[in-house]
């Protein structure tokens, strides 16, 4: 069976969940081969996890050049690998970086590209959910191999232990790929919460939360449920919560098992980012708020009363 290249998303020495989803998906299409791209020493700590989820091979591309410049060096290494291995498909995470690498790869190989894919069948037909979650599209690459970016939380990762054989890639990066230099990486407060797009529970606050200080309430509920914190645009624009946590049309698309909307009206652009959540729960004092049209369970009431009581009740049950 031909190899399916899975470009590993990782952070802080750990494999991200979307990678495990991609490995699971790749097994349906061929033999999964993980591609790790990063600075020296990146691959070793990821290897066990990649094996556990079925990677028969790990291609390790390690160089300061891969880490020190925006995506172009990674795309170059990947293009060479695709040319030398002729894989059955190439999967990347549908994240900012995943899409950007894919974009360059598509140009280099003159190969079609599908982004934000939530399913891929063995005949290469991909499923995408577009237009604020309202439309399901089946599509395929018609020039080249299936080159797709997979949206986090699209499927449940399943382990399938394999023994990954490590193959070291020769990384020589051309000057032309070193035009955008990363001079600094700043981590802004994140804490121990799961990442927004990968979390199985997301608790979001909107304008109704009222202030940055009150967002503690949203965080508290998120922590009790083991979830990530999200926010509506009204909340991020008002400075209640940092922009990278925005859910919706111009923010992140999330698809958790549980989405809790607190003081969010449910505007179409917000729904665009959370509509495909499995279960949706809302608290809003306006019984007519559109969020109730999609909530599996809604409480019409003041979030400053309902949320602390819910938090208390969860603590009691623990």
């Amino acid at each position: 069976m031909a190899e399916v290249l899975v470009v590993v998303e990782h952070s802080g020495g750990e494999v991200k969940k979307v990678t495990l989803e991609m490995l699971t998906l790749a097994r349906e299409l061929g033999t999964p081969a993980a591609v790790v791209l990063g600075g020296p020493g990146t691959a070793a700590p990821l290897q066990d996890k990649l094996s556990e989820y079925g990677a028969a091979k790990v291609y390790a591309g390690e160089s300061d050049d891969l880490d020190g410049y925006l995506v172009a060096p990674k795309a170059a290494v990947l293009a060479a690998l695709v040319q030398s291995t002729s894989p059955a498909a190439v999967l990347l995470g549908s994240t900012q970086e995943g899409k950007e690498i894919a974009a360059r790869l598509a140009v280099k190989l003159d190969n079609g590209l599908l982004t934000d894919v939530v399913g891929l069948s063995s005949d290469g037909v991909a499923t995408q959910v577009v237009f604020a979650g309202s439309t399901i599209v089946k599509s395929r690459v018609t020039r080249g191999l299936p080159l797709v970016t997979v949206r986090p939380n699209s499927l449940t990762p399943a382990p399938a232990p394999a023994t990954a054989e490590v193959s070291t890639l020769d990384v020589t990066v051309d000057e032309s790929a070193k035009l955008a230099r990363v001079v600094e990486r700043k981590v802004e407060a994140k804490g121990a919460r799961p990442e927004l797009t990968e979390a199985s529970v997301v608790v979001s606050g909107g304008r109704g939360v009222g202030s940055a200080d009150n967002f503690k309430l949203v965080e508290e509920l998120a922590d009790l449920l083991g979830g990530a914190v999200g926010a509506s645009r009204a909340a991020t624009d008002s400075g209640f919560y940092p922009h990278q946590f925005q859910v919706g049309q111009t923010g992140k698309t999330v698809s958790p098992q549980l989405y809790v909307a607190l003081g969010i009206s449910g505007a179409i652009q917000h729904r665009a980012g959370m509509q495909t959540s499995k279960t949706i729960v809302a608290v809003n004092k306006d019984g007519e708020a559109p969020i109730f049209e999609l909530a599996d369970f809604g409480v019409v009431g003041d979030l400053f009363k309902v949320v602390p009581q819910a938090a208390e009740e969860i603590r009691k049950r623990k």
Binding site: I136, K138, R140, V299, K305, A310
Partner: peptide
């Protein structure tokens, strides 16, 4: 280089249960 083979409308979500908080909203939520 890619083509849409087919498309369909996703069935719209329908609202489920809605309760009005009369002092027990948080408990009912949990």
């Amino acid at each position: 280089s890619s083509a849409v083979v087919e498309h369909s409308k996703r069935p719209p979500r329908s609202g489920g249960q809605k309760v009005t908080d009369e002092g027990e909203g948080g408990v009912k939520l949990v």
